[in-house]
Computed example of a mutant assay.
Amino acid sequence: MQYAYQGYLPDVKQKISDMAVNGSGIRDTARVLHISPTTVIEELKKRTRD
């Protein structure tokens, strides 16, 4: 499957979690992965609910 937005990729979602565990901030994570800071926040919220 081809995603138009990189933030939807499962690999990117895993990288968000990995970077958060290693102490990267939201803006830093968004900048490195070329996605929106809002996407990073929403994904981290989802991970804490699980």
Rank of each mutant, 00 (worst) to 15 (best):
R47T: 09
K46D: 01
E42D: 13
H34I: 13
K46S: 04
K45D: 06
G25W: 03
K45H: 11
E43N: 13
V21W: 04
P10K: 00
I41D: 01
R47N: 13
L33W: 01
T48A: 15
R31V: 08
R47Q: 14
Q2T: 12
A30P: 10
G7F: 11
R49H: 12
K15V: 05
A20E: 04
P10V: 03
Y3E: 14
N22V: 02
T29K: 00
K45L: 11
A20T: 04
D28N: 09
T48H: 14
P37S: 06
D28T: 12
M1P: 14
S36F: 10
A30H: 05
D11W: 03
M19E: 04
M19S: 02
P37L: 08
T38R: 06
Q6E: 14
L9D: 14
T38I: 13
A20N: 05
P37C: 09
T29D: 01
G25I: 01
T29C: 04
K15C: 04
R27A: 12
Q6F: 14
V32H: 02
Y5T: 09
A4L: 13
T38D: 09
E42Q: 12
V21L: 09
L33I: 01
T39A: 12
D18V: 05
I16D: 05
S24L: 06
D28A: 10
K13R: 12
K45R: 10
M19V: 10
Y8T: 07
K15T: 06
M1D: 13
E42T: 14
E43I: 02
I35F: 04
K46L: 08
K45N: 08
M19L: 13
V32L: 07
I26E: 02
D50C: 07
I26G: 03
S24G: 00
M19R: 05
K46T: 10
